[in-house]
């Protein structure tokens, strides 16, 4: 450690750690509140006070959810969709971003513009549905994976990251006689772990939480994704009377049982939290190297 342990530095450290601890507590609060609510059995979930611990613990909501058989197929379908979605996204996006990162590539501006327009203009629900139908993708997981595979936003973010990789590394590979594809695979991609992990996380979470496309494109109950199943648990417990449901549609109230709603939030977040630490190491790699060397 070369860091000088000055008094000023210590004070700064102290402030930093205190601020971060406070920030952590604040951001943890809504999540904690959901956890408590999901475990709360009494009517105190309807309290107007702030809750920190459940008054009476009950796993009723989780029991109800776990007994809902489609939950597990929902998890499976969501995992499949997320994995395929992330994989396709990474392959297609990186393949697109790399050529665009070469400023001297002819028509680069035209390609970028072509890409950018798709970020701003979309055709709307009806043409998209007709397209999926014409491609015979209805009721297939590909209907959920393919349309979002290449987004302009992701491609441009990745392109910029590729541009920040020092030219010299590529040059030395080129001197060795490597072509663009080899450079891309053996030089660029290994250096791009942070951006690949970032986009994988962004897109993965997007897939994990998506439900509307699945409701529209997937008719088969066995192929429904987790979020649709979770919404179904809520709705089902809410009311079985169609007329009451219509009235709720018209008045937009959220009547759903709090405990169940909170449990459903937990059921969809927790797997993400388990996965996260694995992605996290890519964001601290460089820093770690710096810290050790520094």
């Amino acid at each position: 450690m070369v860091y000088r342990k000055t008094r000023l530095g210590m004070a700064a450290d102290l402030c930093l750690y205190a601020a971060m601890t406070l920030l952590m507590l604040i951001t943890l609060y809504p999540f904690w509140m959901q956890l408590v609510t999901s475990l709360e059995s009494g009517a105190s979930v309807y309290t107007t006070r702030l809750m920190f611990v459940p008054e009476q613990v009950s796993l009723e909501a989780y029991r109800l959810a776990f007994h809902f058989k489609p939950l597990w197929t929902g998890y499976l379908n969501t995992i499949v969709r997320t994995a395929l979605g992330v994989l396709c996204m990474l392959i297609v996006t990186s393949l697109t971003a790399y050529p665009l990162s070469k400023k001297d590539l002819p028509f680069n501006r035209a390609f970028t513009g072509f890409l950018l327009l798709t970020m701003l203009f979309t055709g709307g629900l009806i043409p998209n549905y007709l397209l999926i139908r014409e491609l015979h993708l209805l009721n297939s997981v590909w209907a959920l994976v393919l349309p979002g595979t290449l987004s302009a936003f992701n491609a441009l973010v990745m392109r910029n990251f590729f541009r920040s990789i020092p030219e010299s590394l590529e040059e030395s590979a080129r001197v060795d006689g490597a072509g663009y594809l080899r450079i891309f695979i053996s030089v660029i991609l290994p250096l791009s772990a942070p951006v690949l992990a970032t986009l994988a996380l962004w897109v993965g979470v997007g897939h994990w939480n998506a439900w509307f496309d699945s409701l529209i494109y997937i008719a088969d109950g066995h192929k429904q994704v987790l979020q649709v199943v979770l919404r179904k648990i809520l709705i089902e417990n809410d009311t079985a009377d169609m007329n009451a449901m219509i009235q709720k549609m018209n008045t937009h109230s959220e009547y759903t049982d709090r405990q169940l709603q909170a449990a459903v939030v937990m059921l969809s977040i927790v797997p993400m939290l388990v996965v996260y630490p694995f992605a996290q190491k890519y964001f601290v790699q460089g820093v770690m190297v710096g810290a050790i060397k520094g």
């Binding site: 396709c88 297609v92 015979h136 590909w142 994976v145």
Partner: peptide
């Protein structure tokens, strides 16, 4: 991986 729709679903 991305392009082909599985033919099995064509009728569905």
């Amino acid at each position: 991986a991305c392009g082909n729709d599985n033919d099995g679903n064509a009728e569905a």
